[in-house]
């Protein structure tokens, strides 16, 4: 529903027609505007209210406690782990997706045979839900050692790459980086699609001009193409970044409920629905909202301004 409004705007070539049908358009999108007002902004407001309340237990308690829930989070050791985990996850996830996505896109752009096949192949993991990915990778990354090796560790053992055998997501402190791997696997195809579109938009004449000037292939990519792909990279970082901040289903499917691999979204869920700390849960929700907004709002503002110009 939320996607409808920007869509109508982006079809800029038909502005004239839209002016004529302007009022009808408003009527048609009115239900979805109302629904968004209520179900998105209304509930954001309600969550904000709960986050400054003392609500603990089954029934609502709207006693105002100021920023107490937020200051408690600031000194909550579990929330510190959440932030550390989110930071590691985000870095591994975004860098992994960008590197693999760009690599695949360049290879495809070089004119591989059956390009459509490979494109679909790499994009395919995106069609799978994070839950399925999590369950499968939970098996693949089985951390058991010794004679109980299985999954990827067993594969490493079989092909003689024993030094690669590791404890994956059971590794102390860095386990969350292993959890980011399935996310990279799932989303790098999408990043590839973004980059591929970007590469296709680079005019052939620019490449040829660079080659005529004596640039090597490496220089061509570094000096000419990469700078042109900067907006694509920015979009990819924004999209991947907000996925990473909100990650929940993958963690639940892969790690279950354990503090070592906890992230803010899982803490929010368990503390609210297992522990009935609604005030604290709402506070975590607000922190998540603000951190995503810090990432997304400047981008939206920037693109909207560019559109208008």
């Amino acid at each position: 529903m939320t996607a409808e409004a920007p869509e109508t705007k982006s079809v800029s070539g038909r502005r004239e027609i839209f002016r004529m049908e302007h009022w009808w358009g408003v009527v048609w999108v009115l239900p979805s505007i109302l629904a968004v007002m209520l179900f998105v902004y209304g509930f954001i407001g309600w969550t904000a209210r709960v986050s400054v309340s003392a609500w603990k237990g089954l029934l609502p308690d709207y006693t105002f406690v100021g920023a107490d829930n937020f200051t408690a989070l600031a000194s909550d050791p579990r929330f510190h782990i959440d932030i550390k985990n989110t930071a590691i996850f985000t870095v591994v996830f975004i860098l992994g997706c960008l590197a693999i996505g760009l690599g695949l896109a360049i290879l495809l752009d070089k004119g591989v045979r059956a390009e459509g096949f490979y494109r679909s192949l790499f994009l395919f993991p995106m069609a799978i839900s994070f839950i399925v990915t999590g369950v499968v990778w939970r098996w693949l990354m089985n951390p058991a050692q010794g004679d109980r090796l299985s999954g990827l560790n067993l594969l490493f053992d079989a092909v003689g790459l024993d030094f690669l055998i590791n404890k994956w997501y059971a590794t102390p402190t860095w386990g969350i980086a292993a959890v980011a791997l399935p996310a990279v696997w799932q989303m790098s195809g999408y990043t590839m699609a973004l980059y591929l579109a970007g590469l296709r938009a680079v005019p052939e004449s620019l490449r040829e001009a660079a080659r005529v000037d004596g640039a090597s292939e490496l220089q061509l990519y570094r000096r000419v193409i990469m700078p042109l792909l900067w907006p694509v990279t920015l979009s990819a970082v924004i999209i991947l970044g907000h996925i990473s901040l909100k990650i929940f289903d993958l963690i639940i499917a892969l790690a279950g409920k354990q503090v070592a691999l906890d992230v803010p979204a899982t803490y929010m869920w368990t503390t609210t629905f297992d522990g009935f700390f609604f005030g604290r849960g709402a506070a975590i929700g607000m922190v998540l909202l603000v951190s995503v907004a810090v990432l997304v709002v400047p981008y939206l503002w920037f693109t909207l301004r560019q559109d208008r110009a």
Partner: peptide, 8 residues
């Protein structure tokens, strides 16, 4: 005395 991979 417990196994290191307990979390899995």
């Amino acid at each position: 005395y417990t196994n290191a991979d307990s979390s899995a």
